[in-house]
Amino acid sequence: MHIKHLKIVNFRNYKSSDFDFSEGVNIIFGPNGTGKTSILEAIYFLGISKSFRTSSDRDMLSFSEEHFHVFGEFYNSKKQKLLVNFNYQKDVGKKAFVNGEKLEKLTEIIGKIPIVILSPEYENISSSGPLLRRKFLDRVISLTDREYLKKLIDYRNILRERNELLKDYQRKAFFDYDVLMEAIDERLVDCAVYIYTARRNFLREFRGIVRKEMEELSGRVRIYDMRLDRESLEEDYKDVLKKKLLENFPRDVAIARTTSGPHLERLSIIFDGKDIRDIGSQGEQKIALVAIKLAEAEFIYNRLKERPILLFDDVFAYLDENHRQNLCCKLVSGCQIILTTTDKGVLAYFSKDVTVEAIELDVA
């Protein structure tokens, strides 16, 4: 997959701008504050329907404007064209169109344009806590498994319904596990089993890819692993979770919150026997993060047979000289790459045989 053309109107600091990209390596140069990250944000928005910098679409509006427009012209590996439009209107919301057809649900765009993003503003899972790590799992699996995305959305809706009922029981001081709660738990467990299984199947494949990327990036073998709290697949997980929900019901009512289920799973990133968040130096954490992102791209390709677009925001600031060189050698392996940097010296890290498209931004 690659993007050939991007047009953004009233988006961040861009009133109306067009950008063209090559199928290979693209580097966006410019001082801080010139809108480099906003270009990556617009491309990511087209593929995911969300920003990686903010949870509010309104934040992407140019100052004093009422709407923004983002358009992208994409081509897949079969040279098929994909025209994606997003229109956002203040106080109304956003609408998405693919090849002129309006999407009934924004989630329909997920997986059509595979994208991997690495940015200081987004998902530093090597040093983050449980919530961001779960979000990483859910996002990557959802890109390649639409049933997982459906089950995840259903699970969150049912969980919200269960927690609202728990609040009602708390107000009434009602601590009897009744048929209404049992019916909700049946639906919750059905979704939870799929999520539980899919996450473990994902990690079985993904951890091996990460190890390979770590070795190639760092040039040495280290003990590295990714695992969830309960690593093995339990055939009786459905019964185990049902039992937990029943046993924890009095406590759940007391705090008006569900305390069992995949929404609380913890993902550990193990480096030489311990979680990298606890023992890894900043340099090790950054290398691990880059390796995870490269592994994410490889995993997506293995599942979709389509190379994702790599959006790397100021990635060279993460790495020392040796790792920069190793990364640039890896970035010419078939994916379209769009990098941002303030340093034109990064061109020296690419082989003379590699064509690099340079996009230079000036201070407005």
Rank of each mutant, 00 (worst) to 15 (best):
V189Q: 05
F249P: 15
E213F: 04
G219V: 01
R160C: 06
L180I: 13
L233G: 03
N248A: 06
I287V: 13
K172G: 02
G280N: 05
Y169V: 02
F206Y: 05
I195W: 04
R266V: 03
M214S: 03
L166A: 07
D168A: 14
V189T: 06
R211Y: 07
D272M: 04
A288K: 02
L166M: 12
G219N: 08
Y177L: 09
K274S: 15
L264Q: 13
S218D: 14
D239T: 03
L233E: 04
V179H: 14
R156A: 11
L165T: 10
Y196V: 02
V221P: 03
I153N: 07
H263E: 09
L246Q: 14
T258P: 03
E164S: 14
C191A: 12
P262D: 05
D252S: 03
L188H: 08
S218L: 11
I195K: 02
L241T: 04
Y169C: 02
K167P: 05
D154Y: 14
L165V: 07
L203H: 10
D185R: 03
D229I: 07
R187Y: 12
V179Q: 15
V193S: 01
G219W: 00
E205I: 10
R156T: 12
K244D: 13
I223A: 07
R277N: 14
L217C: 07
V253C: 10
A254S: 15
R266M: 00
L228Q: 08
F175D: 04
L165W: 11
Y224K: 07
D239H: 01
D190F: 02
R207Q: 13
M181K: 01
I270E: 11
L289Q: 14
E182N: 08
D168K: 15
E231P: 11
E161W: 02
D176L: 14
E186H: 06
S281A: 08
I158A: 02
V253L: 09
K212V: 10
L165G: 06
K286F: 09
R199C: 04
P262C: 12
E161N: 13
I184F: 13
M226W: 03
E164Y: 10
F174M: 01
F206E: 05
V179T: 15
E265D: 15
I270C: 08
F202C: 07
D178W: 09
L267P: 01
F271Y: 14
R230G: 15
A198M: 09
G261P: 08
D252A: 13
S268C: 06
E161P: 00
K242S: 05
D239W: 01
I287Y: 01
L246D: 04
K242A: 05
A198G: 01
R200T: 05
K212H: 08
F175C: 02
A192N: 01
L228F: 12
R160L: 13
N248S: 10
K243N: 15
R160E: 12
K243H: 12
E235Q: 09
A173I: 07
V179K: 15
V179S: 15
R211T: 02
R257E: 08
G283S: 08
K238H: 01
V240D: 00
Y155M: 07
N163C: 12
E216L: 11
L264C: 12
E161C: 04
L203T: 09
R220E: 05
L159H: 01
Y155K: 05
E164F: 14
R156W: 13
Y224H: 12
R220Q: 06
A192K: 00
D229W: 02
A288Y: 01
E265F: 03
F175V: 00
R266E: 06
R222D: 12
D176K: 11
